[in-house]
Design a binder for these strands. Structure first.
Lengths: 225, 225
DNA sequence: AGACCAAGTTAAGCATCCTTAAAAATAAAG
DNA sequence: CTTTATTTTTAAGGATGCTTAACTTGGTCT
């Protein structure tokens, strides 16, 4: 296994490169990792020697295939842990990030696979980010639309909630809305642009403001949590 | 938080000192931690400077009060993780030790308390070892005897297995012996000091060596796991 | 007691990952 | 196109935690 530092560098390169294999400036990594520029330059050379990044002096770093593989494994561990801590242990959104940040570096394949199994092979983490599978493949992202742009009569899956203010979260949680809840759009009222939705057998009304912060995906587009 | 190395040294001192605050030879620690004697001497000095152990050259180390506190916290994390991995995630005895060995060093109080809560405040880990509570207090232990000191004809509960080598664990697991299994002592053979036990309807023979590592408690003496 | 052996300690050095400060390369401006 | 400013890299050094090799110390044997 690679050192915690190396894993964090690779993860940060992955995030900074925005998916594609762009080159990332060492200074950008230094900012994100909160270390000196000198430290990132040195690490860039080491990771390059190890074949995990492409690095040419003054040109930034980009992940190689094997580097990306490791970054995706770290990401997988992070996102599965976050989901697990929230779903199974009842921790709050605010608490889980730092915890997962540490656990992601000391979790064997065996353990993370058990966690994945226990969560019934989720595809997305509590923030709606995709969880790489055992081979490092990312699931297809559903097309997300804010709930106020949904079509009355159609059925959707709650896929993402932006703005993590506890007020909003508590409000929608109290209505029985959770990530991956199945909902049906009853109707949309013109006069206040609110949306009425059906969850299970209950119908609730969502204000315009609330409905803008909840994103849904079409049912067929989504296999399972 | 203290470094992983420091936590491991303190834990090892605790285990080696056998509960009471005896002095432990640095060479004994070196053996258990699989590092050189030089490394333990140096660490002894550092831990002593930090007030975590009593250390006089050539006289070994012993935990101070604050050192023992840390050791017990590490122990608490280790044992709760082991139990959690087995009970909640369905991992095997053989798998959990190494896993817990890593997790114990990157688990916040918040998380370990959640785990404790989820397990409904267990008192003993999967090996029958006591789990320190949040204040570092150990629960009262049931009276344990090694199986080779049991009385033929009597019935007991498997309460503890020492030596966590996967070989031993796998062996006894394959015989159907688990923590809290009820067993009956069939007889004890003088010529090789082996013990024959009955589990369910099967009778198995345990060598002297194996029988020394399995501890049982009398049937009425046992509250819960 | 004196000599000897084993246990324990110090010394020197290495790997990792970080720092600050100086030097070099690139980019920008006149 | 040269000078300046900015970014990036190298150099030197520190902390941690380990190694091997040499040296003390303590205990034992005669």
């Amino acid at each position: 296994m690679h050192s915690i530092s190396k894993e964090n560098y690779l993860k940060t390169v992955y995030h900074s490169a925005g998916g594609s294999g762009e080159q990332v400036a060492t200074s950008k990594l230094a900012d994100k990792l909160e270390v000196s520029n000198a430290a990132t330059s040195e690490m860039a050379r080491k990771l390059s020697d190890a074949g995990l990044v492409n690095y040419a002096r003054y040109k930034g770093v980009g992940l190689t295939e094997s580097g990306e593989k490791i970054a995706l494994q770290v990401l997988r561990r992070h996102r599965l842990w976050e989901l697990f801590l929230i779903e199974i242990l009842g921790m709050s959104w605010g608490e889980v990030h730092d915890e997962a940040e540490r656990l992601e570096h000391c979790t064997s394949d065996t353990l993370i696979n058990k966690i994945e199994e226990h969560l019934e092979f989720p595809k997305f983490d509590p923030h709606g980010s995709p969880i790489p599978d055992r081979e490092g493949n990312l699931p297809a992202m559903p097309t997300l639309i804010p709930i106020n742009q949904s079509v009355a009569g159609d059925t959707y899956i709650i896929s993402k909630v932006v703005d993590q203010s506890s007020e909003l979260i508590n409000h929608i949680t109290s209505l029985g809305i959770h990530l991956n809840s199945k909902i049906m759009i009853v109707d949309k009222l013109d006069f206040d642009e609110s949306v009425r939705i059906k969850i299970g057998n209950e119908v609730h009304s969502l204000s315009k403001k609330v409905s803008e912060h909840i994103f849904v995906s079409e049912l067929n587009n989504q296999d399972k949590i």
